[in-house]
Design a protein around this nucleic acid. Structure first.
Lengths: 120, 120
DNA sequence: TGCAAGCCTGCACACCTGCGCAGGTGTTGC
DNA sequence: GCAACACCTGCGCAGGTGTGCAGGCTTGCA
């Protein structure tokens, strides 16, 4: 395996073959970037609380989310906008109420196996 | 279930019982905070690449990680310091070489079931 | 029609973060 | 001792991020 890009080939390495394995493990840069952005959305307690509520409880209105999380409604709205821009949630309008729900299966998996799976 | 804290009890709610379910789903604030910090560490492409390399390949030296990720060694060192402070990795010194490895099982789970599980 | 509920937006503020450079510490080998 | 190597640290810059407030928009109901 010669996965080391040409611009780094002249660097010294300690375990050359392990470097190639590591490059293979990291994989596509765009894939890593996409996941980093996902995790960035999960990295705020407010947004994480919103996602947990939506994941476990299902469709919820903005004002109910505000009460459940203790956030103010502009903050909830702003957080949901970011989550919607990232493709993690979507909102269904019902009159003057908008109910949001989680639509990203990968994030749902992370919440289930990670956050909810490791709380004692 | 009356899980709504007293300071929010006077707010109007759309689905009162769902709010309580949501509060139960969110759980402990410290737990959410701890996971938000974990995700914050995963939210950088550089750190995420390092963690993927360590997770799949095992113990790796700093300079090898720099070659594998294309980062400069101060950046790798800085990233590893943050990951170490967060309890995600640890380093074993062998002479002038320090080999790092992933020690957080929850993060390993997220990497396996999330990042690596959802790449097609 | 008038009013309130529900939700969204814009703006300004302080804060934090990642990065690169230069330089430092400790170890190995000549 | 001296030089090369592996790794770490401090500093400053640029850029992004969360937050609060005030206000606007649309919908539903009397």
């Amino acid at each position: 395996m010669h996965l080391v890009p040409a611009d780094r080939a002249n660097h010294r390495t300690i375990d050359g073959h392990r470097v190639c394995e590591a490059i293979a493990a990291i994989g596509d840069a765009e894939h890593v970037q996409a996941w980093a952005e996902r995790f960035s959305l999960l990295a705020d307690p407010g947004r994480l609380s919103l996602l947990l509520a939506l994941h476990e409880t299902g469709p919820l209105a903005v004002s109910d989310l505000a009460v459940a999380t203790g956030m103010k409604d502009p903050a909830v709205s702003q957080a949901l906008r970011l989550l919607r821009a990232g493709g993690l949630v979507t909102g269904d309008r019902d009159g003057r109420i908008v109910r949001y729900r989680l639509i990203d299966p990968a994030v749902a998996e992370v919440l289930a196996h990670g956050v909810l799976g490791y709380r004692e």
